[in-house]
């Protein structure tokens, strides 16, 4: 299988993948992704990686939509909407995708399937994982898609942690 990375930065509609842990702070990547657009607009994919349950019953009733709904908080949702209205002309679409694979090949396939052109990852921020999710950064680093690392000053334990107000500080 040959992989040709899409390095055409000038393409009118690029697709940028960013990992997310559904915290307000991780939306810094979302803002950076929108900020990076010079021409045209961008499709943004917020990636969440989750391990599927081993139970057959759980798998039978598994639905990505329900899973995303259970993870997205109203505040996170509002924060995304604020960013989207700020960059209304630059963000063509934004959606949340769940990756449930185990292998690098599966991840590569996932990236190609979603036509990802670029990936933004945090430099010093580590994603807050819950008990089902796992960190996609190792997979991302090994993939053939260009990666940009974003550095920002971490907010730490501030009073507005995970409130809408936090969004205005990052």
């Amino acid at each position: 299988m040959s992989c040709v990375p899409h390095t055409n930065y000038k393409r009118m509609k690029r697709t940028i993948l960013i990992p997310t842990d559904f915290s307000i702070e991780s939306l810094k990547l979302f803002i950076e992704a929108a900020e990076s657009v010079q021409i045209g607009s961008v499709n943004i994919i917020l990636l969440h990686c989750a391990q599927l349950s081993d139970s057959i019953v759980d798998l039978l009733f598994f639905s990505k939509k329900d899973m995303i709904e259970s993870l997205v908080t109203p505040v996170f949702n509002d924060a995304c909407k604020i960013i989207r209205s700020k960059y209304a002309s630059k963000i063509n679409s934004a959606r949340i995708e769940v990756f449930t694979g185990h292998t690098q090949a599966a991840f590569q396939n996932f990236l190609e399937g979603n036509r990802v052109d670029e990936i933004l990852i945090p430099k010093n921020y580590s994603l807050q994982l819950n008990k089902e999710s796992f960190d996609p950064i190792p997979f991302i680093r090994k993939s053939t898609i260009p990666i940009t690392e974003i550095h920002w000053k971490q907010t730490g334990n501030i009073p507005e942690k995970n409130q809408l107000a936090e969004l205005f500080l990052i």
């Binding site: 509002d78 909407k81 604020i82 209205s85 700020k86 809408l164 107000a165 205005f168």
Partner: peptide
């Protein structure tokens, strides 16, 4: 004191933040 504005589809949000006595 920072005063920030953001909008959702149907709402305008104003956030006023200080580092005072709480």
């Amino acid at each position: 004191v920072t005063v920030s504005i953001g909008t959702l589809e149907e709402k305008v949000i104003i956030v006023v933040k200080d580092s005072g006595i709480g």
